[in-house]
């Protein structure tokens, strides 16, 4: 299955440096249409007004966390099929289980490398 490299990707992190890093890494694997949000509520507003093929989100953000964003996305009829990758420093098994139960498509633990990001995106989009 070929991947649409022109799709819009929404990256969500409350840390601007991390957004910049992910944006640059995505650019290096030919995803150039990237939008940013600094927490779950901003991301949800963008998702509800735009068209995104993938969400890549941090977990620990205020006021709306990445997990809450994921739950909102999965509860929204229009958004529920959107692939959702969590990128977080939370590396405990209970976190992975909670994210999976909420419907996460894949889970990347920080620090991560470009190869892992590419591999997970390809895997998620292949199943989308």
């Amino acid at each position: 299955m070929s991947i649409d490299k022109d799709m819009n990707i929404l990256i969500v992190d409350d840390y601007k440096t991390m957004l910049r890093i992910i944006r640059n890494l995505l650019k290096q694997i030919d995803f150039n249409n990237v939008e940013e949000a600094s927490d779950g509520s901003e991301a949800l507003a963008k998702l509800r007004t735009g068209q995104f093929g993938l969400v890549i989100s941090d977990w620990n953000m205020q006021p709306m966390t990445g997990l809450q964003l994921l739950q909102e996305v999965r509860a929204d009829a229009r958004l529920k099929a959107t692939p959702f990758i969590m990128i977080t420093a939370e590396s405990k098994a209970e976190n992975v289980v909670a994210a999976k139960q909420a419907g996460v498509s894949n889970y990347i633990v920080k620090p991560f490398n470009a190869e892992t990001l590419k591999e997970k995106i390809e895997k998620v989009l292949a199943h989308a």
């Binding site: 440096t17 890093i21 920080k110 620090p111 991560f112 490398n113």
Partner: peptide, 19 residues
């Protein structure tokens, strides 16, 4: 390209140390 990728990856240390 390889060099800049490695620099981007390494820069994520800032997020981890900040946390």
């Amino acid at each position: 390209n390889d060099a800049t990728t490695r620099i981007y990856e390494a820069c994520s240390f800032q997020d981890i140390t900040g946390q």
